[in-house]
Structure formats: structure tokens, C-alpha cells
Design a binder for these strands. Structure first.
Length: 661
DNA sequence: TATATAATGAAACCCATG
DNA sequence: CATGGGTTTCATTATATA
């Protein structure tokens, strides 16, 4: 099957990292951690069960009231004394978790919590599946500020409650087919749901166990199985997938085995190895699961995405928060509290990734809304990319001179040979491979058979090849792929940036095809010039040929210390060479592998020059890009899963900065 | 050995149309 | 609102060639 595994213990923190230390110093120690993880596992409704493990290590900031990021650019990040900042360590279930279960709490219960002043805190725990009474009790016992001990109390209540009802525990472990003999009423599933849904969404607890059982017994067989699995703590999506794979006749035991195997294959994460549902759910949660099942069936009928409620859609036109030439500029935005720096961060990847990828990326990067920009608004070639960053977006300015924005202006020598039936004014995305000489030769021969005006089908053939391979006219009937130096120019790099030093022509195309468009990135980074007039320290992950470095340099922002992590030696040589040729005054430190970059190394660097102001990175797109026929496996693909290292390192930097202050 | 070439589709988007 | 045609896409791999 197509499950892609990721290297084991990618998420297990290095032994000496500050996060790990924080865990060890915590009063509750690892037992508490595993309990939290277990509970998160039990309650999640998203299949993204990595999230809990990861996000629970966030150094989240807890702040009462509105989490407004407005005017954050006026905040002096060096003196954060006015902010109430608290590292609440492993018990901080930050945004990701709360959002995952948010669909459950949206129906009422929270609104009646008038007696408690901190409604956000209540919402938070409601979202984790605790009852309002329990939350009120826990807050009363522990006070509103100590989230950790509140959660501890809640977990204790939960454990006690499940011990009190051993019968339910049994009923949730139906493992033999015989026990699944319900009355099959067949077709009524589609019509009754309106009333059921209305009842289910009701917030009171008036449903008795027998009423739930009654509804259960009226469900079709496979939905009963789904519900059984859901009540055992699996997600409805997981349950449905398991039944799809194992067949409708499969026993619950077979289905749980399948789900466990799928989970293991998907994560190989030591944290979850012993995670199997053990605790039964109380009636209230069972009711919720029934409600979830109804919602899921609705979505499935309507063909709506079942994986995620809010699917990020690409904007049209793809101009992000505005471009220099469009006149449309969004003046400001509101960032989620957890996203606000320091450090500033800037993440990039292909916009046209498989569905759900950008939702995941955004969720990990503190719920920041991605900015999707097509670089065809900056230069003569398209480049549809998504950028997640916490930079201010007002008072941006472009690099000067503005680059040519049509093929005609960028490659004036081609104009003479351009036939009128080739209507292109922009090139398509610059990729890592180019059309071959043999291909252009075939096209020339095909054209030479006709006069000035080839027939429609020939024009169609030629144009298809032109668009596919980004060919340009360099002579009569003569097409050619772009030269490496033309690609450099289009992407905003200095001429010969990738030339020489033993790099082959093929590898130049490859490195360039994987790079930033400098003008686009520089436009976004331009706001840093006023903030760091004396220069900045940058951590550059997946540096490639140094697009971010070149952008900052061309903006006139001095580079003080740059730690650049890049796996390809050829690319490191290119950046090193550029660094020397441009007479940089700062220090360039090169590392090869992001996976080797741990908290200790980061602390060393940050201790020696006082922290990073900016963390930039475009993680590998191999498994996301549409051109990949072989291994377009999504964010869990072999290379693209390095995104999680970007997040890991960024979060480490965040933690270390907070610790230093 | 190093480099160039050809073969390898599908997912996701746009947009006009009924 | 569905649908069907049109378009785009930071690529990988085996094989041929120099």
C-alpha cells in the first residue's frame, strides 16, 4: 500500500535539547507526558495524530483576552516585559489540538459558562472533551492561571470516572463477530438523520444509554462498525478507511489491527507505540461520536472533503497580500498569538501541492495563513508558491530596477523570431529539467515542411511543446530552452551565479529550478530593512543557491551572521563563492544536514552572536510537485517530510529565545 | 565516468457551458 | 450547481551517448 514511512524518531527530541530538559524538570515527568499523549490520542478526531505529540511541546504563550496581532510590528521584541509570557511546557496543548476538536464544542455547551470568568480557558478544555462541570471544578481547585495543574486534575477525574463504569469498558471492546449481531434495518440511514442530527447537536445530557443503543442498532452494519471503532477512540476517517480495506464483513479485531498497522506505518513514532485505546468513553462522548458519524456521512454524500473542515484554497489572482505593480495591497493582517516572533520566520513551498498539505503546513506554523504568490507578477516567468511568514506586510517595497515582466522585455533578441501565432507573454514555471536539443530539432523539421503559416494541428503541437518545456524562439523555425544565465536573470540572481566551480550544466538547471524567485522573496523581506538597519542574523534552512541571502543583500540589509544549512555541496560552494565575491562583512557558517541540527548546536550559535532574527527556509518540494510522476507522496514523502525539521528547528529557536529573555 | 535524453501521468486548478 | 475540456506542474529513472 501507499503508506510512506518516515525515519523513526524524527520527532523524538534530542536528549539534551531545551525542550527535553523542560520535560525532565517538570514536576510530572514522563508519566505525565505519556498520559497527556494518550488522552490526546483518545480524543482527537483528526487523523493527524502527530499533531498532539508535536504541538504539545510548543512553547506556547498564554495570554488572557483577545489574541490580536494587530500592530504587532510596533512591539519591541527585545523587551517583552509587557507581555505575559509563560512557558507552560508539555501541558500546553496549543492551537493545533484545540482546533482539531473544535468542531465538537461549537454547538453550545461553551456558551453557558457564565460562572467562569476565563471563557477562553474553558473553551480550551471543552475542546479537549472534558465536561463543563469537571472544568469548573478543576479551575476552582487550581486557579485560572495554572493550566498544567488544571489539566492534571481533569485527567484524574477522567481516570476515576472510567473506573466507575466497568460495564461500558466491556461494551467498547467488542472483538468477536458474534458480538456484532445487531438487527440490520438496511435503508433507513439516509432519511432519519435530520431529526437525529438536531437531537444530537443539542447540548444537554438528557440522552440515556438505551437511547443511544437504540440509534446504534438501527444503523447499517458497516456504520455500526464505524461507530464502534469511533467509540474506541479511532477517528471516523480511520474507521472508514479500515472497513474499505478489510471489507464489510471484517471483525472489529481485524479492523483495529488494520488501523494500528496503518498508524504504525504512518508514524513509526516511539511516542505512540503503546497507544491503543483502553479507556471507554462516557455516554456524552459516545453521543458526540454518533454526531460525528452523522456529520461525516453528510459530508461524504455531498462529496465534501472529509479530512479537514477548512481546506485552504488558492487565491485567484495569486497575488498574496499584494504586489508592487497591482496597486492592490492589503494594509495589515492579524497574526495568531503563537505566531508572533521573535524570531521572524519565512517558509516557502509549491502552491499546487496535494490537497491538505497547506492545511498541515499552516497548522504547524502557528496557524498562519499562507500567502500564495505567482512570481509572474514580479518577472517574466510563472512561479506559484505559498509563503508562510510572520513578517509585517505594510510598507513593502520592491527591488530596483523592476525586472522585465514579459518574455519580450526579458529576452528582447527573441522578438525577431516570434511568430504571431505564439501568444505567450509569460514563461511557465522554471523547472529542474529542460527540453532536449533533439526535441527542438524535431520541431524545426516539422515547421520547415510548411511555409510561413503552418496548419492548426502543427501550431497546436508546437505550442504544446513550447509551454511544456518553456521554449523560446531563437531563429527562423528555431526553438531553444532557456540558457542557465537566462534562468538566473529571470529568478533575480546575478549573472553566472551558478556558473563555474565544476558544476555541470544539468546541475545548474537543477539548482536554479529549486530556487526562490529573488524579487518575490525580497518584496516580502523588504520590511526588515527598517527593523534591522544594522543588519541581522539569519538561520537559513535548505538554503539552496542562497535565494534569501541574495534577496537581503540586494535589499541593502547587512548580513551579520548567517548559518546556512544545505545538503548539496555544489550549492554550498555557490553560496560560499557569492559570499566572497560580494565582500560580505559577516560570518557564513555552513552545515550540511538539517536533521543534525539540534538544540545544543543552536544554543551554541545563538549564544555566540545573540540569537537569530530571521529563520528562512523552503523545504523540499519533491514529493509535492506536480511534475513528479514517481513519488508525489505528499508531505510525508521522503524528502518533503523535512518540513517537520523546519518546524522543529524554528520551534527550538523560539524556545531558546524565550528562555534567554 | 559523466552527461544528456526519453519515457513516465495525474492531481488540481481554471473556465465556459448547460 | 455540476461537468467536461483545457492548462499547468521547484521531478525521477532507466538508458543511450560521449
Amino acid at each position: 500500500m501507499g503508506l510512506v514511512t518516515t525515519p523513526p524518531s524524527r520527532f523524538s527530541l534530542p536528549p539534551s535539547s531545551p525542550n527535553r530538559r523542560k520535560l525532565q524538570e517538570s514536576k510530572l515527568g514522563t508519566c505525565f507526558v505519556s498520559q497527556v499523549l494518550h488522552f490526546g490520542y483518545l480524543l482527537r478526531i483528526s487523523s493527524d495524530f502527530r499533531l498532539f505529540g508535536i504541538e504539545s511541546f510548543h512553547c506556547a504563550r498564554l495570554k488572557d483576552g483577545n489574541a490580536s496581532g494587530e500592530d504587532y510590528e510596533n512591539i519591541d521584541w527585545d523587551t517583552e516585559d509587557e507581555l505575559e509570557i509563560e512557558n507552560i511546557g508539555p501541558s500546553s496543548c496549543s492551537n493545533g489540538v484545540a482546533r482539531n476538536v473544535g468542531t465538537i464544542v461549537s454547538n453550545g455547551e461553551a456558551s453557558s459558562s457564565a460562572g467562569i470568568s476565563n471563557s477562553k480557558l474553558v473553551q480550551h478544555f471543552l475542546g479537549m472533551g472534558f465536561s463543563e462541570e469537571m472544568i469548573a471544578k478543576a479551575i476552582k481547585e487550581n486557579g485560572e492561571t495554572n493550566t498544567e495543574s488544571i489539566l492534571e486534575s481533569l485527567l484524574t477525574y477522567g481516570a476515576l470516572a472510567s473506573e466507575e463504569s466497568p460495564d461500558e469498558l466491556n461494551s467498547c471492546h467488542l472483538s468477536s463477530p458474534q458480538q456484532q449481531q445487531f438487527v440490520d434495518n438496511g435503508q433507513l440511514s439516509s432519511d432519519y438523520d435530520e431529526s437525529v442530527l438536531a437531537d444530537l447537536s443539542d447540548s444537554d445530557d438528557s440522552w440515556s444509554g438505551s437511547e443511544i443503543a437504540e440509534i446504534n442498532s438501527s444503523l447499517p452494519e458497516h456504520e455500526k462498525a464505524i461507530l464502534s471503532l469511533a467509540n474506541m477512540g479511532y477517528t471516523i476517517e480511520e474507521a472508514s478507511a479500515a472497513i474499505d480495506r478489510c471489507g464489510p464483513e471484517a471483525s472489529i479485531a481485524e479492523l483495529t489491527d488494520f488501523i494500528c498497522a496503518a498508524q504504525m506505518a504512518k508514524t513509526e513514532d516511539v511516542f505512540f507505540e503503546e497507544e491503543k485505546p483502553k479507556i471507554s468513553l462516557n455516554g456524552n462522548l459516545k453521543k458526540r461520536k454518533l454526531y460525528e458519524l452523522e456529520m461525516w456521512k453528510r459530508k461524504k454524500r455531498k462529496g465534501v472533503q472529509t479530512e479537514d473542515d477548512e481546506v485552504i484554497r488558492l487565491p485567484n489572482p495569486m497575488i498574496g497580500f499584494g504586489t508592487p505593480t497591482d496597486g492592490i495591497v492589503k494594509p495589515h493582517r492579524i497574526l495568531p498569538e503563537a505566531a508572533i516572533g521573535p524570531p521572524f520566520f519565512y517558509y516557502e513551498n509549491v502552491a499546487l501541492a496535494p490537497k491538505g498539505v497547506w492545511d498541515t503546513i499552516s497548522r504547524f506554523l502557528y496557524d498562519v495563513e499562507p500567502e500564495f504568490v505567482d512570481s509572474k507578477y514580479f518577472c517574466a516567468a510563472a512561479r506559484k508558491r505559498g509563503y508562510v511568514h510572520n513578517l509585517p506586510i505594510n510598507n513593502r517595497f520592491p527591488l530596483l530596477p523592476l525586472p522585465p515582466r514579459t518574455i519580450n522585455d526579458a529576452l528582447p533578441l527573441t522578438k525577431k523570431w516570434w511568430p504571431e501565432w505564439d501568444k505567450r507573454t509569460k514563461l511557465n514555471c522554471l523547472q529542474t529539467v529542460i527540453g532536449s536539443a533533439k526535441l527542438t530539432d524535431r520541431i524545426r523539421k516539422a515547421l520547415e515542411k510548411w511555409g510561413a503559416d503552418p496548419p492548426q494541428h502543427v501550431q497546436k503541437y508546437v505550442m504544446d511543446e513550447c509551454r511544456k518545456w518553456n521554449l523560446v524562439w531563437v531563429g527562423k523555425n528555431k526553438l531553444a530552452p532557456l540558457e542557465p544565465d537566462e534562468v538566473e536573470m529571470l529568478l533575480g540572481f546575478p549573472r553566472n551565479h551558478t556558473r563555474g566551480g565544476g558544476i555541470s550544466r544539468t546541475d545548474r538547471y537543477k539548482s536554479l529550478g529549486n530556487s526562490f524567485q529573488v524579487d518575490t522573496v525580497a518584496y516580502h523581506l523588504s520590511v526588515l530593512k527598517d527593523i534591522f538597519p544594522n543588519g541581522l542574523n539569519m538561520l537559513s534552512l535548505f538554503s539552496g543557491i542562497g535565494g534569501a541571502e541574495v534577496a537581503l543583500h540586494r535589499l541593502g540589509i547587512p548580513l551579520k551572521n548567517v548559518v546556512s544549512v544545505e545538503i548539496s555541496e555544489a550549492n554550498r560552494d555557490i553560496v560560499r563563492s557569492w559570499w566572497e565575491q560580494t565582500n560580505q562583512k559577516g560570518n557564513l557558517i555552513h552545515l550540511a544536514d538539517v536533521q543534525q541540527l539540534n538544540g545544543d548546536r543552536l544554543e551554541q550559535f545563538m549564544g555566540s552572536f545573540g540569537g537569530f532574527d530571521l529563520v528562512v527556509g523552503g523545504s523540499p518540494c519533491n514529493n509535492l510537485a506536480g511534475s513528479n510522476r514517481v513519488s508525489r507522496d505528499g508531505l510525508e514523502g521522503e524528502q518533503s517530510s523535512l518540513f517537520y525539521d523546519y518546524f522543529r528547528i524554528l520551534d527550538l529557536v523560539k524556545c531558546i529565545i524565550n528562555k534567554q529573555q
